[in-house]
Design a protein around this nucleic acid. Structure first.
Lengths: 144, 144
DNA sequence: CTAGAACCTGACGTTGACGTCAGAGGCAAG
DNA sequence: CTTGCCTCTGACGTCAACGTCAGGTTCTAG
């Protein structure tokens, strides 16, 4: 398949694919005229690259881990790196989960406040009557 | 407390704190000479900012959601945005979890391969005898 | 054979969250 | 008052993962 088709099917831009190749993440055959040709399963591979990017890995890291992912071959060194990345992802997950819960409690708190009812009008900077000083926990740092 | 102390306790750089203020994320009193002074709980606030960054929120987004987080006050509009961000985080979490499992299976696969034993020498590009063509699933795209 | 869509290689532009440097000023100790 | 560390305000630099534009070539439908 050609680059445009691969881009469409994998959901990335043509530019991105050329960038991946430039970084050594993706290979291609060339037609007689010099155009890139990809096998079908390149789609899956590109999607995996995207996932790894989303997981916070850099191009360089992905390149280093590639032989392991592609062939299942790894030096002990590589295995350490892989495990390290996995652990990093774990950290991100727990962190995200925690943040998610914070956001959730903020949402429920604000919703409760809304339902308990006071006026919420945007586009109005100053209200002198700022009594009713409750806000569940401790308030933090507004703008100064 | 002064900016250096806050930076140290919150685990960020002084530059970052000034940047947060520039973005409207953080406020400060000023001393007579113009130096920034922060209350104790600014540490917690800065840490929260970091968490939100790590969760993929931009400065602008955080600024927009601030009144809700700080005061527990929100317009329905704001609540929608909050919920949207929470859902986005959920997506990231499931995505990360999936990626984590992929990495894990890659690790176990490679470990098995290692223990089943073939030589893994870096710094050696060509080995003709590349038989034993097993690698758990389908192999993807090596370099060309 | 020809039009036009898709592709090619550079090469510079963008964005966000800071890093870094310069030159000047504040602040606590001695 | 001086020393030395901390802080200030600009302002330019950085890095990754692309976006975008220019100028030229290849491929395919008719």
């Amino acid at each position: 398949m050609r680059i445009g088709e691969l881009a469409a099917e994998a959901g990335v831009s043509v530019r991105a694919l050329r960038y991946y190749e430039e970084q050594g993440l993706l290979s291609s055959e060339r037609s007689a005229g010099g155009q890139r040709r990809y096998p079908r399963d390149a789609v899956e591979w590109v999607r995996l690259i995207q996932r790894l990017y989303a997981a916070g890995l850099s191009s360089r890291t992905i390149v280093e881990l590639m032989p392991c992912v592609v062939d299942g071959r790894a030096s002990p060194e590589l295995l350490d790196r892989l495990a390290a990345e996995r652990d990093r992802i774990d950290e991100r997950i727990t962190d995200l989960t925690d943040t998610r819960h914070r956001l959730d409690s903020v949402i429920t708190g604000a919703t409760t406040n809304m339902l308990t009812g006071w006026s919420c009008q945007p586009e109005d900077g100053d209200e002198e009557g700022d009594r009713d000083g409750q806000a569940q926990e401790g308030r933090k740092q507004p703008q100064g």
